[in-house]
Amino acid sequence: MATPTSLTYKIGGVLEINRMGYGGMQLTGPGVWGDAPERETAKRVLLYAVESGVNFIDTADSYGPHTNEVLIREALSSHYSDIVVATKGGLERTGPNQWPVNGRPEYIRQTIDGSLQRLGKDEIQLWQLHRVDPDVPIEETLGPVADAVKAGKIRHVGLSEAGIADIERAQTVVPIVSVQNRYNLSERSWEEIVDYTAERGIAFIPWYPLASGPAKMQEKIGTLAEKYEATPAQIALAWLLNRSPNILLIPGTKSLKHLQENLKAVELDLSGEDVESLTAY
């Protein structure tokens, strides 16, 4: 394993983006409930990200709910021709930190139309199923998604928290170009999916990318941070960029300072030995 050979990736083989993106979830209230408390600051964070070269923004209809998509439209609609906005559907919100799954086709159809309206778009470049509903066959859930693709409302489709069987069943309904699962230095349960997607030209988008794990790993990360004159978060992000060329990063923050730090992770040239030492934990 070596340092990343490319800092760009083509989603679906056509949408070329920078692999360091931005996730909008933190631009909401406590428990991902309600609008961003400091709305103008949130807009400035989004604008700074795009002006700094970020051209992949991740959101979901459930963030707020709904408020995050509206915020992105207000802050970034003038940049829509230059960026890819990915959103998700398939979760309901009943209160702070509450996320009931709903994969019923009629609900999915509503979420797609709602996201289009809130984002102010005619087409969603990447729509992702936020969770697979255990009570609804994924083929049924994705029926209205396939219809939306045919109607020009959605260009590409992805999944979140999905295994190989989910991906393969979904592929019988509509092409899957991305998988967004929880993955970071300490959470490696989806290692097989990282490799599976890489082999098939599917983007892997880790959520919660900055977790640094147990004390033993934090000590190792701290040592490398000193070596490279970087922050632990930058080391964690740089490792993900090196882990596989299909990994797209969407670290989120409401702080301009932390955003600036995160973006600098692409400049870190980790040695192959250091990457392997982290991978081995």
Rank of each mutant, 00 (worst) to 15 (best):
A2R: 06
T3F: 10
S6V: 08
T8C: 11
K10M: 10
V14K: 14
E16W: 15
E16C: 07
I17N: 12
N18T: 10
R19Q: 05
Y22N: 03
T28F: 11
G31L: 04
W33R: 05
G34F: 11
A36R: 12
E40K: 15
K43A: 10
K43Q: 14
R44S: 14
V45H: 02
Y48E: 15
A49I: 05
V50E: 07
E51R: 14
S52Q: 11
G53T: 06
N55A: 02
N55G: 05
F56Q: 09
Y63W: 13
Y63E: 12
G64M: 00
P65F: 11
N68C: 07
V70E: 15
E74D: 15
L76Q: 01
S78T: 14
Y80R: 15
V84P: 07
V85W: 12
V85R: 02
A86T: 02
L91I: 04
R93V: 15
R93H: 05
G95F: 01
P100L: 09
N102P: 10
G103S: 08
I108P: 06
R109C: 00
Q110N: 07
T111M: 09
I112A: 05
D113A: 13
D113Y: 00
K121M: 12
I124P: 01
W127T: 00
W127M: 00
Q128T: 14
H130Q: 11
V132A: 06
P134I: 09
D135E: 08
V136R: 12
P137C: 02
G143T: 14
P144V: 11
A146E: 11
K150W: 03
G152S: 07
I154K: 09
R155W: 03
R155G: 03
E161G: 09
I167G: 04
R169T: 09
R169W: 12
A170Q: 03
Q171S: 13
T172I: 02
V174N: 08
I176F: 12
V177G: 13
V177Y: 11
S178R: 01
V179Y: 03
Y183N: 05
S186A: 15
S186G: 14
R188C: 03
R188H: 01
E191Y: 00
E191F: 03
D195L: 07
D195C: 01
T197P: 07
A198S: 07
A198R: 10
R200W: 13
F204T: 05
F204M: 03
P206A: 11
P209T: 09
G213Y: 07
K216D: 12
M217G: 05
M217N: 13
I221S: 02
I221G: 04
T223D: 11
L224M: 04
L224G: 06
A225K: 07
E229I: 00
E229A: 06
A233N: 15
Q234G: 09
I235P: 12
L237Q: 10
L237P: 15
A238I: 05
A238S: 10
W239P: 14
N242D: 07
N242H: 09
S244W: 02
N246W: 06
L248C: 07
L249Q: 00
L249M: 02
I250Y: 04
I250A: 10
P251V: 10
G252I: 06
T253N: 08
K254W: 06
L256T: 03
K257S: 15
K257Q: 15
Q260E: 11
L270Q: 03
L270Y: 01
D274N: 08
